[in-house]
Amino acid sequence: MTSSHESTSLSRRSLLAFGGAATAGIAAATLTATPAWATPSNAGIDRPKDQGRMLRELRELEQSSSVRIGVHAVARGERRAFRYRADERFPMCSLFKPIAAAALVQERGYDDEYWSTPIPFTEDDLVQDSLVLAELDPRQASPEQLADAAIRFSDNTAGNLLLRELGGPSAITAFAASLGATDTRLDRWEPELNDAVPGDLRDTTTPDDIALLYSALILEDAAGVLASSRLREWMLRCQTSGPRIRAGLTPPYELADKTGGGSYGVVNDAGVLWRPGAAPLTLVILTRTDRPDAVRNNEVVAEATRIVVGR
Rank of each mutant, 00 (worst) to 15 (best):
L249K: 10
H5E: 14
L136V: 10
T240E: 02
G52T: 06
P91D: 08
R288F: 02
I151Q: 00
L226F: 05
Q140T: 11
E165W: 01
V225L: 11
P251R: 08
R59K: 13
L179S: 10
T282L: 02
G20D: 14
A294H: 10
E78W: 05
A101V: 09
R85C: 09
A294G: 07
F96R: 00
P35T: 05
L131Q: 09
R188N: 05
A22E: 14
S41F: 08
L201R: 12
L255H: 03
R139T: 04
D50K: 01
P251F: 06
Y264H: 12
I151V: 06
A22D: 14
D111E: 13
P40W: 07
S142Q: 09
Q106C: 08
N297E: 14
R68M: 05
E233R: 03
S241W: 03
L31H: 13
G167M: 05
G159L: 00
I210C: 02
F153R: 12
A21H: 13
L31N: 12
P118C: 13
Q106Y: 07
A134T: 12
D155H: 03
R83E: 12
R230L: 10
N42P: 00
M92F: 00
R89C: 05
D221G: 06
I69T: 11
A33R: 13
L231F: 08
M1G: 13
A75L: 04
D209I: 00
Q106F: 03
N297D: 15
L286T: 07
E190S: 00
S178E: 15
S228N: 06
G262A: 05
A176V: 02
A38P: 11
T23I: 05
T204G: 08
R76I: 01
T204Q: 09
G77T: 02
E192R: 11
L201V: 13
T305F: 07
L136W: 06
F18W: 08
A174N: 07
S65K: 04
L166M: 09
S142W: 06
L201C: 02
R53F: 15
I245K: 05
S65L: 03
A223R: 12
L212S: 12
A81K: 06
R306W: 05
R47W: 11
F121N: 07
A222R: 04
R83T: 15
E60M: 12
G25D: 06
M92A: 01
